[in-house]
Amino acid sequence: CHSECLGNCSQPDDPTKCVACRNFYLDGRCVETCPPPYYHFQDWRCVNFSFCQDLHHKCKNSRRQGCHQYVIHNNKCIPECPSGYTMNSSNLLCTPCLGPCPKVCHLLEGEKTIDSVTSAQELRGCTVINGSLIINIRGGNNLAAELEANLGLIEEISGYLKIRRSYALVSLSFFRKLRLIRGETLEIGNYSFYALDNQNLRQLWDWSKHNLTITQGKLFFHYNPKLCLSEIHKMEEVSGTKGRQERNDIALKTNGDQASCENELLKFSYIRTSFDKILLRWEPYWPPDFRDLLGFMLFYKEAPYQNVTEFDGQDACGSNSWTVVDIDPPLRSNDPKSQNHPGWLMRGLKPWTQYAIFVKTLVTFSDERRTYGAKSDIIYVQTDATNPSVPLDPISVSNSSSQIILKWKPPSDPNGNITHYLVFWERQAEDSELFELDYCLKGLKLPSRTWSPPFESEDSQKHNQSEYEDSAGECCSCPKTDSQILKELEESSFRKTFEDYLHNVVFVPRKT
Rank of each mutant, 00 (worst) to 15 (best):
P410E: 07
T127V: 03
R332P: 06
N141Y: 13
L252G: 05
L362H: 15
A374E: 02
D377K: 05
D257L: 03
F193K: 00
R332L: 05
V359Q: 00
L294T: 06
K407R: 02
D115R: 05
R244P: 11
E156T: 05
F299R: 15
N198G: 06
V324L: 07
M346T: 02
L204K: 01
W207K: 03
V238C: 12
R332W: 02
I232F: 01
Q354N: 07
G152I: 00
G189L: 11
E283I: 04
P410L: 08
N340F: 13
C105Q: 00
Y300L: 08
K337W: 12
H106G: 03
E184L: 08
R247H: 06
S319I: 15
L293N: 04
Q382E: 09
N320A: 11
I114A: 01
L180I: 14
T353G: 02
Q216H: 11
R347G: 14
D312K: 04
P330M: 07
W286T: 07
F290S: 06
K177R: 11
L123S: 01
K103F: 07
K234I: 09
P329H: 04
P336K: 05
K301W: 06
L212T: 08
H341S: 09
L161I: 13
L252M: 08
T241G: 15
L227Q: 02
P391E: 01
T273Q: 07
C126N: 00
F174C: 13
L204H: 00
L147C: 02
R165I: 13
L147R: 01
N255K: 02
S269L: 11
R272L: 07
R244A: 12
N248Y: 03
C126F: 01
I135Y: 01
R281S: 12
I154G: 00
P330Q: 09
Q199I: 04
Q339V: 11
E262F: 06
S402W: 05
M297L: 13
Y160H: 14
I134V: 14
S192G: 13
F268P: 03
L108E: 14
D289S: 09
L227K: 00
P330W: 14
F174Y: 14
E187I: 03
L196W: 12
R281C: 05
D393Q: 15
Q306S: 12
Y355P: 00
H106R: 03
L201M: 01
Y194L: 11
K350C: 07
F296K: 00
Q339S: 07
Q121L: 08
I163R: 01
L392A: 03
Y380F: 11
F268H: 01
A385L: 03
D384N: 13
R369S: 07
R291T: 09
F193Q: 00
I129K: 01
R182S: 15
E187Q: 03
F365G: 07
W352P: 00
L229Q: 14
Y305H: 05
T241Y: 12
K337L: 06
L133A: 02
C261H: 02
S260Y: 07
D335H: 07
A251W: 11
T273Y: 06
S171R: 05
I405L: 15
V325W: 14
G295Y: 07
E283T: 08
I357T: 05
C228Y: 02
F221V: 13
H106A: 02
R179H: 08
G159N: 04
N307E: 15
S158R: 04
I163P: 00
K177N: 03
S319R: 15
E368S: 08
Y305N: 11
L123V: 12
L279P: 00
E237H: 12
S173Y: 11
S401Y: 10
P225E: 10
K409H: 04
S119I: 10
G243S: 06
P284Q: 13
N263I: 12
G240P: 13
K350G: 11
N211Q: 10
T273P: 05
L201Q: 01
A374D: 05
E111V: 05
D206V: 09
Y300H: 12
I134F: 13
L293A: 07
S269P: 02
Q382D: 03
I114W: 02
D384H: 14
D292Q: 04
D335F: 11
G313D: 15
D115A: 13
I327P: 01
K218Q: 02
P330T: 14
W286E: 05
R179D: 08
S389L: 07
E184D: 07
G240E: 05
A385R: 08
Y372R: 03
S366R: 10
K209F: 08
L212N: 01
W352M: 14
L212K: 01
R138W: 02
L266F: 04
N136F: 09
N263K: 10
D257K: 02
A195N: 09
Q121P: 05
G159P: 00
S166I: 06
G189I: 01
R281F: 04
Y355E: 00
P394I: 06
Q245E: 08
L201W: 02
F268T: 02
G373T: 14
Y160S: 10
S119K: 05
E236M: 05
S400A: 13
S119E: 04
E283K: 06
E302P: 09
E156L: 07
S192D: 00
A195P: 00
L186G: 11
F311G: 03
P342D: 09
Q216V: 14
I378N: 01
S119L: 08
F358W: 04
A374V: 09
P304F: 13
E146Y: 15
F296S: 13
V104G: 03
L201K: 00
H222A: 06
